[in-house]
């Protein structure tokens, strides 16, 4: 009888302990939000939200804290990565789900898994010794190789696995009946893929791209290593507007990482404010991806 009471006691205790563990993630999210907000408040108060967001100069020594250049840097490098990486990732996803024979899949998929596992600092190093010197050969005044284009290329490879994996899964989840129905009507394989399979998988594919976007915005170390880190609003360095990608830049993430260890006072607070902006941006991106995924499920 006593052992029965003891057993019930353990059961009840464990239930509470496990519930608390389950709620730990929420607690961490709340703590992160509160702490970052609390530390950012002085900056928001003293500099002003609008001035912080729209200011183009970041000179902590002079008390100037505008992060527009970093917002532009993060935005442009992500755009570049999307333009380079998304077509490759989507084509790979279609290849793996619809076209490649089984033995090819067994080569390609582990390769992509490995790409996903390579540490970002290794990508950064690879960018510094391979991509940057390559970009430096583009003849343009002031082109040092370090800049948005190098960073976009590195980032494109880094988000490739995320986008390819989720898209492949989305295409594979399309009911087999759709494929058979289309082929039975005399559609070619390609017509079936382009007119039935991809449209049916579209919500999943879009959310894959959006999740990739979120990852790109959050990348830190590899960006610091190849983007040049200058706090300037990126501009075209020659007459060609595309040469804006040869410009050096700094990302929101890089701004935090590079300066936090020695910043004090309003400067430190402004870096936390940078974190809040990044956090909000990524939450928006991720929740829209989740929204699209759920919409696709119904």
């Amino acid at each position: 009888m006593t052992s029965g009471i003891r057993r019930t006691g353990i059961e009840k205790t464990m239930k509470v302990v496990l519930l608390i563990s389950a709620l730990a993630s929420v607690l961490i999210v709340v703590l992160i939000f509160l702490f970052t907000m609390k530390e950012a408040m002085p900056a928001f108060r003293e500099i002003g939200v609008w001035k912080l967001l729209s200011g183009t100069t970041w000179r902590p020594g002079n008390g100037e804290f505008g992060i527009l250049a970093m917002i532009a840097g993060s935005g442009l490098v992500t755009l570049g990565a999307v333009v380079i990486g998304v077509p490759l990732a989507l084509c790979t996803a279609v290849f793996l789900s619809e076209i490649a024979p089984e033995w090819i899949v067994r080569i390609v998929r582990p390769s992509i898994e490995l790409l996903a596992g390579i540490p970002s600092v290794v990508y950064g190093l690879f960018g510094m010794v391979v991509i940057v010197p390559l970009i430096r050969t583009i003849p343009a005044p002031g082109n040092a190789g370090y800049g948005l284009l190098s960073a976009s290329i590195v980032l494109a490879v880094m988000v490739l696995p995320t986008i390819a994996n989720i898209s492949e899964f989305a295409i594979r989840s399309v009911p087999r009946g759709y494929r058979e129905g289309s082929l039975a009507l005399g559609a070619t394989k390609w017509e079936t893929i382009s007119r039935v399979m991809i449209p049916a998988a579209r919500p999943g594919i879009i959310s894959a791209v959006v999740l990739g976007l979120g990852r790109a915005l959050g990348e830190t170390i590899a960006m610091i290593m190849v983007i040049g880190n200058s706090v300037v609003l990126p501009t075209a360095i020659t007459g060609n507007p595309l040469s804006i990608f040869l410009s050096r830049a700094r990302t929101l993430t890089g701004n935090i990482a590079v300066e936090i260890s020695y910043a004090t006072g309003v400067h430190e607070s402004a870096l936390f404010a940078t974190g809040v902006v990044l956090f909000v941006l990524i939450m928006l991106v991720n929740s829209s991806a989740r929204f699209l995924l759920n919409k696709g499920a119904h």
């Binding site: 009911p175 759709y178 129905g181 289309s182 082929l183 039975a184 005399g186």
Partner: peptide, 18 residues
């Protein structure tokens, strides 16, 4: 492709496209 145009098929489970 030509063959399947001439020989249509209806499946066990209705499979309209989305």
């Amino acid at each position: 492709v030509e063959l399947r145009k001439k020989v249509g098929m209806v499946f066990q489970r209705p499979n309209p496209f989305p």
